[in-house]
């Protein structure tokens, strides 16, 4: 599925300083029944965000009007657990384009990259600086620059570089997906398949 190109993003950020945020929290399984990719943002962090009677839990960050933005900042080991791409869809559909953490689970990271959400892995100390800066001033902004692979805290100008596979970087910058690439390889794939023993 094609998505918007990602180049530079300057935005306020939503802090979620909890570790091991698993994909069951990001979107619980009972909301995975759709057959189309629509409306998952409504159920993002459903059980942290709403009581069982569907009223909002006021102390959860997404329900606090002070915090908004296109960047979600989470504690270490973000996105562990289930492979459900619905977690990445929910984050995208809610309006986030970038997730920052000090560590990501593998499948979640891949899923994000495949749908145009940029996962930015920073050091533990830089993550703490971000949390502190947002706590001090929720209007503070972060700049995520994909071409130079840097993330900057605008208030202090503190900056860190982040890693991204050059191929994936190219895809995100151009809004390409892997299937476009794989379809070009079809003749090679077919030759290979013919040699496979099983």
């Amino acid at each position: 599925m094609a998505y918007d190109k990602f180049t530079t993003l300057n935005s306020t950020a939503v802090p979620l300083p909890i570790e091991n945020v698993d994909t069951d929290q990001i979107i619980p399984a009972r909301f995975l029944k759709a057959t189309e990719r629509k409306g998952f943002g409504d159920n993002l962090f459903r059980d942290w965000r709403f009581h069982q009677d569907d009223t909002p839990k006021e102390d959860f960050v997404l329900n606090k009007p002070t915090y908004s933005g296109k960047i979600l900042v989470g504690g270490k080991n973000f996105g562990s657990g289930s492979s459900r791409e619905h977690a990445a869809w929910a984050i995208y559909d809610y309006g986030f384009r970038c997730v920052v953490s000090s560590f990501f689970a593998d499948i979640f990271k891949n899923n994000c990259l495949n749908i145009g959400v940029l996962p930015v892995q920073v050091s533990e100390s830089f993550l703490q600086q971000i949390f502190e800066a947002i706590e001090k001033d929720p209007t503070t902004t972060l700049t995520v620059d994909l071409p130079s692979q840097t993330i900057r805290l605008e208030e202090t100008k503190a900056e860190e570089s982040f890693e991204i596979n050059p191929y994936k970087k190219g895809n995100l910058s151009n809004g390409f997906d892997d299937i476009d690439y794989l379809l070009q390889l079809k003749p090679t794939i077919k030759d290979f398949a013919n040699q496979q023993p099983i």
Binding site: M1, S83, R84, E85, H86, A88, I107, N110, N111, N114, I115, N165, Y167, D177, D178, I179, Y181, L182, L183, L185, K186, I189, A193
Partner: peptide, 20 residues
């Protein structure tokens, strides 16, 4: 190994997946 839905589409389309 487990994969996301974009990757399911990749494998259906090409019997391949792109993984480091």
């Amino acid at each position: 190994f487990g994969i996301g839905t974009s990757e399911v589409e990749m494998v259906l389309a090409s019997q391949c997946i792109m993984q480091p």
